[in-house]
Design a protein around this nucleic acid. Sequence first.
DNA 1: GTCCAGGGTTCGT
DNA 2: ACGAACCATGGA
Length: 220
Amino acid sequence: MPKIQSSAAGELFFIYNRLYQAFGPQGWWPAETALEVIVGAVLTQNTAWFNVEKAINNLKKARLLNLERLSAIEPKTLAQFIRPAGYFNIKARRLMEVMKWLKNAGGLKKLRRLTTPSLRKQLLCCYGIGPETADSILLYAFNRPVFVVDAYTRRILSRYGLITGSEPYDDLRIWLEKNMFPTTCSRTRVFNEFHALFVRLAKAYCRTKPLCPGCPLESD
DNA sequence: GTCCAGGGTTCGT
DNA sequence: ACGAACCATGGA
């Protein structure tokens, strides 16, 4: 469990505002369709985004980035297209499983009617989709107010003293969702920016020590 | 050559 | 429930 701290909400807002001031809106997720978000979410597992873009481009150029074509393709063929994203054999299998699930569920339109908990449950049943990928898809493809907890979130918040860093995934997610109540804009919007800003921070400042001198979260 | 990424998921104990 | 194993490209 995260440390019980009455001021947790305040601390989180301080962090969010500092990051937003420093880096501005990040405009995630960079994709044209919900399906592209889903594909990208699987491809970026343990992989640099730069390489994911190449893989997505390959699929786009081959006009493969739609549910029909992607569910019909041979896993071995798909693997060749997504090669630049690494782990291509396993990711091909994972993508196929997700497409199978999507088709089975009657497509994105049908899925949009489900409640967030029910949608999350279904995503987690899919081979190749763990908690983080499920939440990325919920937030960025379905626009649900879900906090995506990644390794950066853990590192930065534990460095900040708000958590120990070893809390189970769902403990952190629920705790973050409970402590982030924006007044002006939607929760979905804030969770969207918050996650992207954590990544942005890690990209700009020492990966191992996110609160190094000069970073926007350094106390004065 | 080594390290690591939009640092995850699955599998075995 | 926790740790280990696994999957593989490309840029710094």
